[in-house]
């Protein structure tokens, strides 16, 4: 119930935070909204020696127009901020429909998108959504800035490409093709509310056939992944029921699907297929 003792720092600039983080050398952790980190610390499943609270770094708070339908979501933007952002939800309508499915009001008021990505819970929803949107991540350390694709960022359950001295400063979402439809569908684990399986789909048509497809799945593998085989099967198809069904059959191709006492691998595999179909159908229906 009570975290182990730690030192606390609340830098007001990113540079200051990076210095502190480098000095903390693995013993320090970044604190954003705290919605994942503090529960772990309360159960003493994590006991960092120092917390670097980035909550007051004004430059991280922004949701920026990157032009042409692209959006920059700063590290401190909460789910609530994004839902309230006309810019973000217009550019990427999936955010408006998917975010209300994440956690609850209180969690969305505090939790950041960047925190969810940095935390990399394999059951979290946002990774699939960002993969389908082909997001990139801006990462800073004392050594400078690098920009990486969300794809490849997740290395395993709770493991990412983020170094101990790095801060994720912005999530960039590129424009999606004109007229694309997008949707997120998930089946939740009732106790925790996290997804047993969740599927994000961004689909565009060219004439009568599907010309653009980005499908990403969370909960089935040990990290969220792009379902390339599904995308390949969809591309060029007519997007009819049979085509979707056939494509969805590839939802877990190449994945080692996990089991726990809530749901076994066979069920998750089946749900990955069902929810792929449902997400694709919904995305198609959302094409304007």
């Amino acid at each position: 119930m009570i975290p182990a003792a730690f030192d606390y720092a609340r830098p007001t600039s990113l540079d200051e935070a990076l210095v502190l983080l480098a000095r903390g050398a693995g013993n320090a952790k970044v604190l954003a909204g705290g919605q994942s980190l503090l529960p772990l610390m309360r159960l003493r499943l994590a006991s960092p020696g120092q917390l670097i609270d980035i909550g007051r770094i004004a430059e991280l708070r922004t949701i920026r127009d990157l032009g042409g339908g692209a959006t920059g979501i700063g590290a401190l933007a909460t789910y609530r901020d994004v839902l309230d952002s006309e810019l973000a939800t217009r550019n990427h309508p999936i955010l408006a429909t998917a975010i209300p499915m994440i956690g609850d009001v209180q969690v969305r008021n505090r939790g950041t998108l960047a925190g969810s990505i940095a935390h990399a819970d394999p059951a979290s929803d946002l990774p699939a959504i960002l993969l389908a949107l082909e997001g990139t991540l801006v990462i800073r350390s004392g050594n400078g800035e690098r920009v990486v694709a969300v794809e490849g960022f997740f290395q395993g359950a709770f493991a990412t490409d983020l170094g101990q001295d790095e801060i994720l400063t912005e999530i960039r979402l590129p424009a999606t093709p004109d007229g694309a439809g997008m949707a997120y569908r998930a089946i939740e684990q009732p106790a925790s509310g996290y997804s047993m399986v969740g599927v994000a789909a961004v689909i565009g048509r060219v004439g009568d056939s599907i010309g653009y497809a980005r499908i990403a799945i969370t909960g089935a593998g040990n990290v969220a992944y792009r379902a390339m085989a599904v995308e390949a099967a969809l591309l060029g198809s007519d997007g009819g029921a049979a085509a979707i069904e056939a494509a969805a059959a590839h939802a877990t191709d190449g994945q080692v699907v996990g089991s726990d006492f809530n749901a076994d691998a066979e069920y998750r595999t089946a749900m990955a297929q069902v929810y792929t179909r449902r997400a694709v159908e919904a995305a198609l229906a959302a094409i304007d």
Binding site: L43, P190, A191, S192, F261, N262
Partner: peptide, 23 residues
């Protein structure tokens, strides 16, 4: 529909918190 306390064969309470026991 939802609730159940589940023990592993080693006697660990798998549904040991509200994250795994569905209130």
């Amino acid at each position: 529909l939802w609730e159940g306390a589940v023990y592993g064969d080693d006697g660990q309470l798998l549904s040991g918190s509200m994250l795994d026991y569905a209130v």
